[in-house]
Design a protein around this nucleic acid. Sequence first.
DNA 1: GATAGTTTCATACAACTGTTTGAATTGCAA
DNA 2: TTGCAATTCAAACAGTTGTATGAAACTATC
Lengths: 220, 220
Amino acid sequence: MASDHTRSAILTAAERLYADRGFSDVTLRDIVAEAGVNLAAVNYHFGSKDELIAELFVTRSVQTNRERLRELKAAEEQGGGRAPIEVILRALVGPTLRGCLGPENQRSTAARFMIRASIESVPPIRRIKNREIDHLRKFAGAMRRALPERSDVDIYWGLNFALAMAHHTIRESERLTKLSEGKCDLDDVEDVVARVVSVATMALTAGKAETKAAPRVAAR
Amino acid sequence: MASDHTRSAILTAAERLYADRGFSDVTLRDIVAEAGVNLAAVNYHFGSKDELIAELFVTRSVQTNRERLRELKAAEEQGGGRAPIEVILRALVGPTLRGCLGPENQRSTAARFMIRASIESVPPIRRIKNREIDHLRKFAGAMRRALPERSDVDIYWGLNFALAMAHHTIRESERLTKLSEGKCDLDDVEDVVARVVSVATMALTAGKAETKAAPRVAAR
DNA sequence: GATAGTTTCATACAACTGTTTGAATTGCAA
DNA sequence: TTGCAATTCAAACAGTTGTATGAAACTATC
């Protein structure tokens, strides 16, 4: 153990390089050169390249999930076990969006890394994401408590759409900026959060008071 | 030219293998073995591996885009140059969803290939997707005509969210099925289309008559 | 200050990758 | 049939990759 110097130098260098150039064209040799350590150090400290990537992703990923659950728990406690749907959705997408968007020049390495991870989806990261279901179930539960008259199917679809808007906006932020010729301001993170939460709330509450059946737009 | 036998055998084999096993662990040697042709044939007929992948993706991609524009044009002509927003959105997300979802056992190779392309996002495909902006602009234009009192920013955000819901649902269909324990039926494609169109329409029309400013959910 | 355990290092390994080569084969036209 | 171009083929190429090895350097304990 002693000093983690080499180990953390690898983590720092790897996160920076992956963030800047993507997973597919950064090799272990690039990483150890950047970190100023020996090639064998990666396998010595992490076991394999994939385990290094996994550790990078897990670290950032649990940070986001912890923040999500913190916001969720705070909201439910304040409401006596039942939080408003908007606040639940904000706890779901807020931390993710705040962690990845914002003014580009002050965007952290961690943020850029998570964007990469969202775009490229390399095997070790995909494996971790697949274990995220239990985490999402907690939000599904809270949403069900917030909207008890809503069917499970609608809850899951609402959850799916909320995540869809958040992740797609992160992943395609560059394209949206170009398409809108800069009119959509992705640096105003709180505005993005508000938009996603607003639409997701509508998706989950539309026609709520009237009938349990989900309202649909008539085809043609 | 003569008979495209070798060329099309490569295309067929490559699409099938990429669809089944993903881009990252299918090599040219796998493809030529499956196609029953010589290794050098790929470079002879396509120039490089990336150009082969690009051709596969472009073929399917223009099919979808053509279908999209066909539906859009039909709708606008029928409405005298102005189509209902629901129909425009349906033309945008319908072909994509229909091309990728549906009962798994009868899902075509092309469909499975496009799902892969959506998940893995390999360089040659990313390059092609970046040229899709002009195509999307046509939809932005139609949407602006359908909702003239709506700001450009809101139009672009609505377009972004519609695509987000469609693509994320395709990409994460397996996870949504697992999360909802099968309650969300992704085989009922027209139901999925209706849900996406419904939510996107709400996103674009909420608070429409009252004020031009986009309605927001209050923070906290 | 010798010893045991940890960490670093240069180097080699073994396998796999996409691509190229140049000769053989094929198919078509004169 | 002859000639020429297009196509196929086996083989090699050149480079890269992640990983393993075994010796050297370091560190802390006794």
